[in-house]
């Protein structure tokens, strides 16, 4: 464990807690894409298949349980909660996210480190996570104004993967044969997708203006 990875995990944890806090306290999911949340639930479900078979550490298991629990409860809140689901704007959240699931699955079948079920599922979860934010970014473009919590959620989500890239660089230089091209490229693509959001997020933060994304 290095500082970059710990910071990345904490940032990722903060992003899901900010979202849960927002939904649970103000009982609203305005501006949140259910599609992105469903994709993230699928990412964790396919990435943590070995949660009970492959014990790494107490920390690792706890964090996996938190990510699984939070992502599925966020989906439940938006879909099932009697008050929260009313603030879900399904007319705006129209990204056909199942269309990106299939290419990720096909790609995972073609490009992976080992052709076993768990390894293909794990690779699929990496590819899917790289594009899971797309429905949310599309929704933000549409709804233009972003409330603070949603902006912070997306920012923290992008920042966690950027910190993971620093972690991979650190591990590459400090550990022998630590080479995971698939993870690195998927992580880089994921972070680049946030790039323009980061730009507008910092602009609004610098000018102390409301965060607005161009049409």
């Amino acid at each position: 464990m290095n500082i970059f990875r710990l910071a990345g995990d904490m940032t990722h944890l903060a992003s899901v807690l900010v979202l849960l806090l927002k939904i649970h306290t103000i009982k609203s999911c305005a501006g949140i894409s259910l599609k992105t949340q469903e994709l993230y639930a699928l990412v964790f479900a396919t990435r943590y298949l070995d949660i009970f078979t492959n014990y790494i550490s107490f920390y690792n298991t706890i964090m996996k349980l938190i990510f699984l629990g939070s992502s599925f409860s966020i989906v439940w809140y938006i879909k099932r909660h009697k008050i929260v689901h009313r603030s879900y704007d399904k007319d705006q959240d129209t990204f056909r996210h199942w269309f990106i699931v299939l290419p990720c699955l096909v790609l995972a079948l073609l490009i992976n480190e080992r052709f076993t079920f768990k390894e293909v599922m794990w690779t699929f979860s990496l590819y899917l996570e790289a594009v899971a934010i797309l429905p949310q970014l599309v929704l933000l473009q549409r709804t233009r104004n972003i409330d603070n919590l949603t902006g912070q959620y997306v920012f923290l989500l992008g920042a966690y993967r950027a910190l993971y890239i620093l972690n991979w660089i650190y591990r590459y230089f400090t550990e022998d044969h630590y080479i995971h091209w698939i993870t690195w490229i998927a992580g880089l693509v994921q972070t680049l997708l946030y790039a323009d959001f980061f730009y507008y997020y910092f602009q609004s933060w610098k000018n102390n203006a409301k965060l607005e994304l161009p049409a």
Partner: peptide, 10 residues
Amino acid sequence: PPFNLMKDEL
């Protein structure tokens, strides 16, 4: 290290 131990990241 064994392959699955390489999956020590979240």
